[in-house]
Design a protein around this nucleic acid. Sequence first.
DNA 1: CGTTGCTTTCCTGTTT
DNA 2: TAAACAGGAAAGCAAC
Length: 249
Amino acid sequence: ETSEYRYRMSIMSSSPLESSLTSSWDSSNPYPDIHTVMFGYSGRLLPYESQPQFWSKYQVWDWVQQIMDMHQIDTSSIPLQNFDMDGHQLCSLSYQDFLLAAGSVGPILFNSLSELKWSGNPGSVKSLFVVTEMCEPCLHPVLPVASHTPSNQRGIHLWEFIRDILIDPERNPGLIKWEDRREGVFRFLKSEAVAQLWGKKKNNSSMTYEKLSRAMRYYYKREILERVDGRRLVYKFGRNARGWREVEK
DNA sequence: CGTTGCTTTCCTGTTT
DNA sequence: TAAACAGGAAAGCAAC
């Protein structure tokens, strides 16, 4: 497994991906550890680790955003809703489909996907072993998703929506990151993307971080959130926020 | 129908 | 300077 590991690392180190990842991971830490470089945010598995046709729709989003980052394109310049699909659907898109979905960015995404289709790692037993060894969520399994994704209850609250993205790193496409897991401190990495996703949930295509953050500020009074001063895009769960701790119930 | 809770929208001003 | 932060004010809306 050592050779495969070195192979992976050499790919990662020589690509623009590394700088893209480390800069958005934590600007205060110039020396990201192996875990960070290999798995990115929240210990999640990078979509590059498997074949695109098997990506979840969250991994598709992740891929789109990382390609945009690599090309220094603002994520908000294309409607991410157009990529609300899983890897299988993504792989069946034509060049024309990409043009329609992403305009001038379409060809970039199309070419990137074409490359991945050819060089995609089949996902061997060894790579799965490495993932199991290093993936934090595997060592500390989160509570069943069903208890947090209300199928019977209508109308999810914003803070629950944020929490559910955070506690399920597998599905968190680098949108929000824990700053201090135990204390419940977290930071928005892609504020506008989170707003779009929230808007999608509420069937509101005009949602922005500006408006989302106003709702977040209302949570301070209700002690669902606590203030974190001087740190942009950073929030902290308060005493009235439930279901975010690692050991809770 | 009216109330209530939770936003959503808009705004002006301040801070980073 | 752009992006966030702060809140007041008021509208929207679904549940009750």
